[in-house]
Design a protein around this nucleic acid. Sequence first.
DNA 1: AGCTCAACCTGGCTGC
DNA 2: TGCAGCCAGGTTGAGC
Length: 277
Amino acid sequence: MPELPEVEVTKLGIQDRIVGKKVTGVRILDGRLRWPVPHDLSEILKGQKCHELSRRGKYLLFRMPKGVLLIHLGMTGVLRIQNPEEPLKPHDRIEIQFEKSCLRLHDPRKFGAVLWHAQENGPIESHPLLLKLGVEPFEKAFEGDAGGDLLYKKSRGRSVAVKQFLLAGQAVVGVGNIYCSESLFEAKIHPNRPAGKISRPRYQLLASAVRHTLKKAIKAGGSSLKDFVNSDGEPGHFMLKTKVYGRAGEPCKICAAPIKQITQGQRSTYFCPVCQK
DNA sequence: AGCTCAACCTGGCTGC
DNA sequence: TGCAGCCAGGTTGAGC
């Protein structure tokens, strides 16, 4: 579920219940995530107030007086505010308790991460997991022409397919497997084209498509914000409808040619062989 | 430095 | 119905 829009919507959905609240305890139900959850997380967090919740790429950063709690949702993670009385569900992994509510991480595949970055280790921006991330898609460095310029510059000399280049997040963060296919379709760029051989004007179109695709998805997700608080149900898939992703063999919405599915870097890519060149 | 690929883990779906 | 095989929204780290 989580690409950048889903993480952003999660942030918006939980922040009012988190910011300014004091942690009263932590329950580690299964700490074997991508990396082991610190066994003493409860002692670390207890008594600290989260003064800001922010997002960097697909990481959520809970800023506290003594450091930053990093949470990544991996492939299947869902964070939700719940009443502590609410029975645990299978695959609930971590519970962070606040005075009147708790935050639960539900993550069947355990690719998520919950890590603590202590203040004395320096600014969170220098954390190894954040260090090599590209720019944020909605920040100045990716606005307007700057976005296309950046993709163009970062891709020079790169032979890798543009799909993989964009997905890797070294230039711009947050474009996951679904929105990558969708953005390339919108920009009419063939996913197999070598990243280094795409012109500056075409990268302008791609940057614009990335911003548009992500914004649309965030907007769609905003309508389900209530699902993040005191809900039994999963926040649904709020990508309203995809134009190519998951539509192999179905007609292109522009030209009616059958959508193709290929594998790139062990991931599925969907595209229209007629519209995308 | 950049490219490719295995690996982490679990569940759901397809097809025999 | 049962079960093997394949697929899934992410990311790191090893080997070349």
